[in-house]
Write a protein that binds this DNA or RNA. Structure first.
Lengths: 259, 259
DNA sequence: AGTGAGCATTAACCTGTGATAGGTTGACGG
DNA sequence: CCGTCAACCTATCACAGGTTAATGCTCACT
């Protein structure tokens, strides 16, 4: 039941990308997979591996890290519902390390399943392609983030992005998100030093934008955070054509603080 | 004749990505296109446009710029043979401004042509997909570049990347590249100030790594530049499976300094 | 209760880069 | 021939953020 719950994140994610029908979703029922659990900072995929399966993230966060940089720079972050490595469907050689941020649950799905899925359903094929394109858009935005913002706004922007991405799959609806990652992880994602990450978070706290205690972050002033970051969710789009919807809290569910 | 020459860049580019046959290349012969010329800093596509055609770059350089950042941050650079906006095939809304760096010649090709091409030839379809994936890998690398290198190595890395990308389409074989872009353009791509870009270039000159006079850059010590930048061309790959070939100067052609 | 590991916090100091502002060169037009 | 303009070069000063290192907190395990 826990597992079925987690799998529905993928459905949510795909639905956010294209007009998926019930029939299409039924195709996911046959998905073969084996479930794997990972602990904090444990490697899911290693640089140089040849992938034969995709990593579908069910719970927690994963990060891609640059193997060459000494401080383990993080180049992207995956949230539940993401396929961490969709590109391996077409080019299986792994470039970078895929590492869990905090405990994570991953479903390993044979490449073959997705290839057949795409062959069987044009809409699903399109959704997978849009997933790739969205990853690309996110990556471009990380480039912008590093290139044009200072530490404070950079961290703020990253938090905005993660929040909206979680909301797309039904998490963090009340702007509370589980944060198993450390301040050093955040620093590695924003390319600042861990010490300065700390200074920065304190500044965000002092502005009453958020609380970060223990393993959850509560964003107490969403609009303030968005304004500070200059965050525009359009790039995360979400249903081709439409512009991104503002992440309004929909009727609360029971699954709120679990990422 | 000039034009036919330029079109062959696309063939070179696609060939570098997948095992293209002569029959596949023949399909390119029907490519409908209209040619457009642009001057320095002129916009090719504007943020918010809806694209119905792809921009195939024949000569010169194009850049994607972030419309929100005041200094016109450059988030990626296109070289001849690149399709500047392959993602518009699937999501036509333009995000960012596509701007010419120096004079550029572009072939505008209807989306329809590429969709039919992909439907007709699986290999071509694959090559187009790999083009998207390579763009993505390059973008990830820009994130790494901004996040983990200082100004000097950042500029060095960018120059290495551009050089190798030019070489895959038969340009810059002798490590001389046309550089219609200004130091400010370079600065915008590396997210440093124009003044500091100048300091940096002088440093590179002082180390005898390159000459930059007028509108051409001559890299005089390629290995030194690669070492300084920590450049590893693997991410540009270039024929799935293989690792990237070292960019050896092949028998010189007549087209050397023209980008 | 005691120990140790990992993480958060604080402080003192240092450096790369930005900002500003001025000077030089070269291409072009009248 | 001179004025204009854009690009390039140089110098100086201020500050965001890096580095290092010491201290404290919290939790897990014995």
């Amino acid at each position: 039941m826990q597992a079925g719950f987690a799998f529905s994140r993928l459905a949510d994610r795909l639905t956010s990308l294209a007009e998926i029908t019930a029939d299409d979703l039924d195709l996911l029922a046959d998905m073969p997979s084996s479930i794997a659990h990972f602990g904090a900072h444990q490697a899911v995929l290693r640089h140089g591996d040849e992938a034969t399966r995709c990593c579908l993230l069910l719970q927690g966060y994963l990060s891609w890290q640059n193997p060459e940089s000494p401080d383990g720079q993080i180049t992207s972050i995956c949230v539940p519902g993401d396929i961490a490595d969709p590109h391996t469907l077409y080019r299986p050689r792994i470039d970078g390390n895929l590492v869990a941020l905090g405990p994570a649950i991953v479903a390993l799905v044979p490449h073959r399943f997705f290839h057949e899925l795409a062959a069987r359903s044009p809409v699903m094929s399109r959704a997978l392609l849009l997933m790739l394109l969205t990853d690309h858009a996110i990556q471009r935005n990380w480039t912008i983030n590093l290139g044009s913002r200072d530490a404070l706004t950079r961290v703020a922007h990253l938090l905005c992005e993660i929040t909206v991405r979680l909301q797309t799959v039904g998490l963090a609806r009340d702007f509370r998100l589980s944060s198993p990652f450390t301040q050093s992880d955040l620093a590695a994602a924003c390319s600042i030093s861990p010490v300065h990450a700390n200074r920065t978070i304190q500044e965000l706290r002092r502005c009453n934008l958020l609380q970060w205690r223990g393993k959850t972050i509560a964003i107490t002033d969403w609009r303030g955070l968005v304004r500070l970051a200059g965050f525009n969710p359009a790039y995360l789009s979400i249903r081709s054509g439409e512009d991104a919807r503002p992440p309004l809290p929909r009727p609360a569910a029971a699954d709120v603080a679990v990422a």
